[in-house]
Design a protein around this nucleic acid. Sequence first.
DNA 1: AGATTGCAATCTGCATACAGTTTACGCGCT
DNA 2: AGCGCGTAAACTGTATGCAGATTGCAATCT
Lengths: 225, 225
Amino acid sequence: MKQIRRRQVIRTGTTVEQMVRAIADMIVTGVMHPGERLDELSLAVRFDVSRTPVREALRELGAMGLVDREPNRSAVVANVTEAYLHSMFEAMSELEAICARLAAERMTVDERHALELEHRASARLVHANAQEDYAAHNTEFHTRLYRGAHNDHIYEMVTQTRARLAPFRRAQFRLPGRLAKSYDEHDVIVTAIMRGDAAAASQAAFSHVAIVSDASIVFASDKAE
Amino acid sequence: MKQIRRRQVIRTGTTVEQMVRAIADMIVTGVMHPGERLDELSLAVRFDVSRTPVREALRELGAMGLVDREPNRSAVVANVTEAYLHSMFEAMSELEAICARLAAERMTVDERHALELEHRASARLVHANAQEDYAAHNTEFHTRLYRGAHNDHIYEMVTQTRARLAPFRRAQFRLPGRLAKSYDEHDVIVTAIMRGDAAAASQAAFSHVAIVSDASIVFASDKAE
DNA sequence: AGATTGCAATCTGCATACAGTTTACGCGCT
DNA sequence: AGCGCGTAAACTGTATGCAGATTGCAATCT
């Protein structure tokens, strides 16, 4: 067959960009599990493209740390060691603490307001024990925090780290009572930021992420190979 | 010509890895300047490979942030905005502060000893005003600090950030008296780490990098397009 | 002369072909 | 039966070809 075809599933950007998004999504959302093989030909057939864009996408995903690649072997969904996982969680705490500190100092009035609203709105989800929805809120909340630091490079690093951690902390809100605790922790952060207390915001954000890390590592070890 | 050739310049690893290293080196060492075009065919001819590995290398370099790519345009050596450059320097200060703090807490006796030796040895270079050699020492010194934090992911982030900054701070040690100042600043860091004073080490490292940033941004603006 | 449009050269994006490597299976040997 | 060993299948690595996009230039018109 000649190249008169065009993908149908995804739309915008170049073929490779689409592949990167599609594959990253499968990894981050847990459709594919750490250690699973990413066969070039299968992916090419699946998305109806040739192996060339698939290869370039896999290389980019490798650079992002979402997949592991070795010469003459299939790429596999990144399966980090316990030690490296720990180092990523620790880094996440540190980055989050920085963001909270900078956010407390730099957020505009509008940003502070939006953060507070977002946080307040989530109270309802806690009472309803709506884990899925709370997870979405949680992502949004932290994203606002990262943006609030007004530092693009830090934003990039923290976002990338979060993406790499995603496969390992899917189940964090399933721990009983975790939703309410998370809300309370967010509350401390928000309060500190609202009154511009950088040190308190930083400290609160650090502990919050450290707690999440502990919860997640418990689950991560379940599916370790 | 058929594919009976083999590259000669570089040795280890796959073709793409070699290309990545070679191109990254040209960028980081300043052989190529920000904004300069990276034409696929020229690179392919230059390194005696086809365009395929060149393309993959460029994609990886793009993911690293060393080159900018846009669809249907040549890759160019990354030329970051003043704002983004500033955010990278700020991030570098923060990361370095974290590393210094963790290093003060976690470095083994051997690591502390090696750091101190490395630092002491550089005094000679300051007196001789050996800028090239001092730059090499400086890199080594900071690398020891990063490693001393005993956190692989933070090490990865700080190393990658440093590589992206490299093209913009080449001339930092040419400022008169900068060598001696740098040595003194290192001294404060080393002293704090040796006595395990995490807060002091962190503070000293933060200021040190902030000063380097200021010096570098002066030079960076010289060659901005 | 200056602006504009059309064309040709150049370059990137993707597909495909081919070469080299790894893996898996089956056959023969002990 | 178990163990090598060789071969084929499956897959990755690289080269090359073709199509589409971009750019520079030149001829033409105002």
